[in-house]
């Protein structure tokens, strides 16, 4: 699926919830299923700054696609990371770099987009795009 298609799928999943409680319960469930980062990558090098909770993110390049794994000590943060991983993992660097993240707003998690927000969603997206940029440069060379 393309990034756009996955985002639409997520938007449609969230559209069945009419109150915040169900939405966050779903996010918490997703947090429990995040593709776990290998313990050996849970180092300061993989920590994303700007988060009140700790978030580790790792990227791997296989056959011109980037695969992300992550972990966090906060479960809602993990749920948000998981959403991003669903959207970006297994995509090409170009597709990741070109993608927008409008779906976050569409599923009603707009408040997490503020750059000062403690869960650092913006930092996570930035870090994922940074990985994509690095792999793209490597490919181009």
């Amino acid at each position: 699926m393309t990034i756009q298609e996955i985002q639409e799928q997520i938007v449609s999943e969230f559209s069945v919830f009419d109150d915040w409680l169900d939405k966050y319960n779903y996010l918490i469930e997703m947090g429990k299923e995040v593709p776990r980062i290998d313990e050996r990558f849970k180092t300061n090098n993989h920590l994303i700054s700007g988060c009140q909770s700790r978030v580790w993110l790792h990227a791997e390049n296989r056959e011109s696609k980037i695969y992300f794994t992550a972990d966090s000590d906060a479960v809602i943060t993990k749920g948000i990371v998981n959403l991003l991983i669903r959207v970006f993992s297994g995509q090409s660097p170009e597709a990741i770099l070109d993608a927008d993240t409008n779906f976050i707003e569409q599923i009603g998690l707009k408040e997490h987009l503020s750059p000062t927000r403690s869960n650092g969603l913006v930092s996570m997206v930035k870090q994922m795009k940074l990985y994509a940029q690095v792999y793209k440069l490597k490919q181009d060379n």
Binding site: Y24, Q52, I76, S118
Partner: peptide, 21 residues
């Protein structure tokens, strides 16, 4: 079993403003 930021986020959704961190 919980992280302060998770509790703070959920309290916020219930209209309760606290500080976490």
């Amino acid at each position: 079993g919980t992280h302060p930021s998770d509790i703070g986020t959920l309290l916020d959704k219930m209209g309760v403003a606290v500080r976490t961190g």
